[in-house]
């Protein structure tokens, strides 16, 4: 029997009140404006694997990351970490120690006034993990070496490092409390492509060596393919497709997933004419009724406008869960025969 997943998320939702100040609202005679950043998503991450969430800006993927580490309380639903409700798990230092986060912007994620050794040692001190100052120093040196920096770098300040090196420092800090679970919020999207490769390789090595579990947030499908075991595609706060990585790329089922892959510039220069999906992502303050993708979807019909689809195993590729009436009804033309092969992407 499979062991329990390290993290389970059930019907998680989070809204933000983005109303104007009360007085202005009353004067203008308008109601409250509620932004539904995450609107009822569920998934589980088995130990030692990577689940990635992909989607365009505003789809709610970063909000999920923050909900999972307890930076926001959920508006609805629950997060279960190692069998414990998140709030209870986070109240226990020993459980809290086991989850860590890596952030997107290497220029904002390190306190500019602290030396690197203090930044890396902060979790060690917070959890009282080493008995002496000497042991702490040795641990910091070991961590810096582990992420490809020199122990001497500990004496420096963050501004003395390049973006890629700073991200290594961030990773060293995250590893310093010996975590089991890392939430990585766009860890390479601020980096140049050759440095991105360095960081992705490092993260994969660390996962293999330390048996880490990752929740990986990214907008870059090619990056996601390199690191993931399972991938969730998000659109307007909901999961539209959740599938094993290989299945998602060989047989994407949801029309949005297909549109997303179609939109990626083609590095192989096959001369293929791409037909970009029309329209733009609607506002999450007033999302469309029914399926949120229906205004842009070539397969939309009346049911899609009225009824919200739920994640169901897709016909033909049962490993993929797809929230799409067209797929459920077989209106999507079934499993795509040959997905384009030989495409490479994207951002340097």
């Amino acid at each position: 029997m499979a062991e329990t997943p390290i993290l389970e998320v059930d019907d998680l939702a989070r809204s933000f009140d983005v109303s104007r100040p009360w007085l202005q609202r009353v004067l203008a005679g308008e109601g409250k404006r509620i932004l539904r950043a995450v609107d009822g998503i569920s998934f589980a991450i088995p130990r030692g694997t990577t689940l990635s969430l992909v989607g365009e800006s505003g789809c709610g993927k970063s909000t999920v990351a923050r909900l999972v580490v307890g930076l926001y309380p959920p508006s609805r639903g629950r997060v279960v970490f190692e069998g414990l409700e998140l709030e209870r798990a986070r109240a226990i230092a020993e459980q809290r120690r086991r989850m860590q986060m890596i952030f997107q912007d290497p220029y904002a994620s390190l306190n500019p006034r602290w030396r690197v050794k203090d930044i890396v040692a902060e979790p060690i001190r917070a959890f009282g993990m080493t008995p002496s100052a000497a042991a702490q120093q040795a641990k910091v040196a070991e961590l810096l070496t582990q992420v490809g920096l020199s122990p001497l770098d500990g004496e420096k300040f963050p501004h003395e490092f390049s973006g890629g090196q700073r991200q290594r420092i961030s990773i060293a800090r995250a590893l310093s409390s010996n975590p089991d679970f890392l939430v990585c919020d766009e860890p390479t999207s601020a980096l140049d492509v050759s440095v991105q490769a360095q960081i992705l390789n490092l993260m994969k090595d660390l996962q293999a060596r330390l048996g880490l579990t990752y929740l990986f947030i990214s907008h870059n499908l090619a990056v996601v393919r390199q690191v993931s075991d399972r991938i969730g595609v998000m659109y307007l706060g909901r999961l539209v497709e959740l599938a094993p990585a290989e299945t998602l790329f060989t047989t994407p089922r949801h029309p949005y997933t297909r549109a997303l892959m179609e939109a990626i510039p083609d590095l192989e220069m096959t001369g293929r004419q791409r037909i970009p999906v029309g329209g733009e992502v609607p506002s999450p303050i007033s999302p469309p009724s029914g399926c949120p993708f229906h205004p842009r979807c070539p397969l939309a019909d009346d049911r899609c406008k009225a009824e919200r689809p739920v994640l169901l195993p897709a016909r033909g590729t049962e490993a993929s869960l797809t929230a799409c009436h067209a797929v459920e009804e077989g209106r999507d033309g079934g499993v795509p025969a040959a997905q384009r092969v030989g495409t490479t992407a994207i951002a340097l």
Partner: peptide
């Protein structure tokens, strides 16, 4: 709202 503050909050400082 900078990420270094969020990092400290994740640790539970």
């Amino acid at each position: 709202n900078k990420e270094y503050v969020l990092a400290a909050r994740v640790i539970g400082i």
